[in-house]
Design a binder for these strands. Sequence first.
DNA 1: GTGTAGGTACTACAC
DNA 2: GTACCTACAC
Length: 1082
Amino acid sequence: MTRIGRRASRPVREPAELEQIPVWAPPDDADGQQAPDGTAGLLAGLNAEQRRAVTHGDGPLLVVAGAGTGKTQVITRRIAWLIATRRARPSQILALTFTDKAAEEMQARVDQLVPYGYTDTAVSTFHAFGDRLIREFALELGLPPDTRVLSRPETVIFMRERLFEFELDQYRPLGEPTRFLGALATLFSRCKDEDVSPERYVRHAMELGTALASGEPHDPDHPLSETDERLAAAENARRQLELARAYARYQELLGRAGLIDFGDQVSLALRLLRESASARQEIQHRFRYVLVDEFQDTNRAQAELVELIAAHHGNVTVVGDDDQSIYKFRGAAISNILDFRRRHPRARQIILRRNYRSRAPILDASYRLIRFNDPDRLEFRNGIDKRLRPERTGGERPVRQIAFATGSEEADWIAREISDRIGKGARAREFAILVRANSDADPVLRSLNMASVPWRFSGTSGLYARPEIRLLLAFLRSVADLSSSVDVYALAASDVYGLGGPDLTAIVNTARRRNRSLWEIVEELTRQPGLLRLAPDTRASLERLVADLRRYSEIAHEKPAGEVLYEFLRGSGLLARLASAQSVSAEEALQNVARFFDIVRAQSDLLPDDRVIFVARHLQTLIDAGDDPATAEIDSEADAVAVLTVHKAKGLEFPVVFMVGLVDGRFPARTRREQLALPVELVDEALPEGDPHVQEERRLFYVGMTRARDELVLTYAADYGGRRARRASQFVLEALDVPAIGAGVAATDTAEAATAVAASEGAASGAASPPSPAAAGARSPLERLTSFEPAASPAEPGREPVEGPLSLSFYQVDDYLTCPLKYKYVHVLRVPIAPHHSIVYGSALHQAVQEFHRRQARGYVMSEDELIAAFERAWSNEGFLTREHEEARLAAGRAALRRFREGQLLPEAVVPAYVEKDFTFSLDGDRIRGRMDRVDVERLAVDSADPTALPDTPTPALQADTTTPTLPGLHPERVTITDYKSSDVRDPVRARERARDSLQLQIYAMAYQAETGRLPDALQLWFLESGLVGRVEVEEKKLEKARESIRRAAKGIRARQFGASPDYIACGYCAFRDICPASAAR
DNA sequence: GTGTAGGTACTACAC
DNA sequence: GTACCTACAC
């Protein structure tokens, strides 16, 4: 399509001038036929249905446009047609899309069809459109004219800064007050998607409470008893009210600050149309035609907005395909499209069936698959036929499924296959590899690298995780706070200074031993070289590190953060190194650095002060709030294999598509409940008859399949590193119409995988014959990959295994088992870390309780004031989020101690036999040491000697009976070991589970046995905040498991194996996550 | 059937 | 940490 006409010099006209607009004649049809209204060119090349859709006159129109049917053509040509036939001036047309990218593309196409000067049609995203309305009518909405829009991470920071202005209890645990902020932000955003106002949410929550009070009759079939059901309902009502009020407060605080969030861009526009009659009239009058792309992905609020704008004239065209609705998780209401005709009985419906993209076998398989979503499909519900008819015929290849033994074989095979075909003349850009989740791409990318196949991966995050950016962040944090040893350590150990080995260990250990920060020690070392014996090159690097940090700290007071950062990049030689390296990775790193600079600049602009100390802190808060931009992508036009998620692939097409990792649990992904879900009563969406999650996953699979033009390959493996063999995705079976082949689908080696390929290619349906299950007996790759094998990670280079006995505390064992690298940071390198508020709180509580017990042993009962004074003496104000947070924790601690003291004053309370009891015992020649909080030794009455008869309370109702004679074979006393916990456990079941799984308690049991020759009877965790106690009996089986864990840790520590074992959760809580090269956090 | 232990995954994307 | 599933014991 070529551009025609020239930009009109005339200004935009008022509606009254409409009739004077000169008729713009589009180019004629190629065959010379001219339509009477001069629009033939616009209709050229369209099929009959498309033409009908484009030339639909007034009134509602639903265009059901399946994959590859020319949907965008229809919308853009319809816009051009409406203009060309003078049904509307360009500015009277509103076209709405979801993404900026889609809006841009559509605008470009409209520009090609309509001459310059006529293209002031509003092609924009819902959000951009809403934003424009909000600003135009800011006065009506009571907003300042310069309202700023907060991104999601920014809303989290906004709430964090005002955390104690919310009335929260359940959703602001003091041990981790920010824990639910992300979930709250999601919930509030979902409310806006679903057009639920704070008032409505609060009303709903109140009604839950009233319904409870008025007493609904108990359903005898309900699984819970009447009492339990009432309790659960009351708890739910309470929580919902807490959430609803938090939502109302959030809106109130935003309003007060003159800010809005993304959700508001639509919901406020909606409110404007609802509440201001004049604004409504004006807007309805302004837009005579409304067109919506991807209508199946609109949420409730967006659909409502469209309805209101078009309510007056009903000129609304929606284009979509219910089978491609894949954004339910962000509010897409498939009922919008399913119910369109019910809401608009006069609506015309046009179905586009001709598919210009895919060959017949691909369409057949896709259709077979999607039919499994019946009856919850438009086709079934409205009794229509929307099966796609292939326009591209000939040269068909069957859809293939290929099974592999392992994920790496799967990835290798694909890489080799693509590489071979490129060798035979294919272009890399003809291939796409679709994954369900971004993380599924890693093995594929590795294999493509190995096969030297160029690729581009469109991840949407990961910038801050890049090593070059982590280094810059560590630098900024170091300069902002020289006492941050973790960051100074990361900087020292980086390539820039190259420190390491025993010298660095010695330096760090000195810092820890002398209770000083790493910076203080390195700084002292340059002034007093005699402090430690160090290698000359270590000394030189240290001098440089200290001089640099001094210099940068100095200029950081004068210059903005961006300049300091640039100085570092230049001064350290990093910039030169990256710029001169001729590798793709260096180029990428450079671009990532550039991107990071943009962020530093943009965020600096928002702050009242743009110097490092403020910018560094702000950036960290932003990262903690979940900000995670994409990494740089070099040359998106390059000839490379596209590796992308199915979501990202929507709207694209490729000659050859591989869908990988197609196993149960990955695709379909397993269902996960939202952390805080909007109550179903507030969601105005009819439930489908089938499983909504599986249906959405099936639609996603359908979208993936229909990206393929000529060839589609579905692959999966039995072994993705887990212990269990994986089963093929049900979707593969549905699409290819093969019976389920159950577990053990994988071939045992690549030769067999190749057989599977051959079998697939021969079969008409493209189905593979099920390969034989993995050979039994021998250790499977599954086991080899996942079993914890210290030998798997190499010992520290240049270090001999530790000779002689180790001395280990429980914390050392526990840290090693969590992650060997964490063990190294904490116990070998001993990098000093800033105290966490939970540690401050826990240790103050402990100290107060222990003092109470010590005095108690001497016959003195501390008064409440004395106990609390002891608590406050042990307090330190480090690590708390805010002053309010610290106050809240202090108050919680005082309350816990009062409760604790009262329990101890009851007549049946037990006076502990030992407190703070140190121990050491030997296990396989290693020394295990530690300290027990509390040991109780109770004399038992004979008839109470059955320990299982004891109640689960912290103060067992037992009478000490000194006259009871000792019976042979029976312990006349009952020994209980207690560990006090300050963590927030409010559920007795949880308390017991925690005790059951506690390695610490098992170690205490062993220690007691080693010292006294007998095992204790019970072990318990005492949660001071709730007063709950989780208790377990001692069992040999558990003890042996605990010994096994200790041995495993000891073996690894002895061999100096400190390879990281990154874990999603453990990394998230690790103090070293910001500097750890292996961190899996975020 | 019920309880326990062990294994697994902690999305997808955008304004 | 935790929700959920499966296998297995009783």
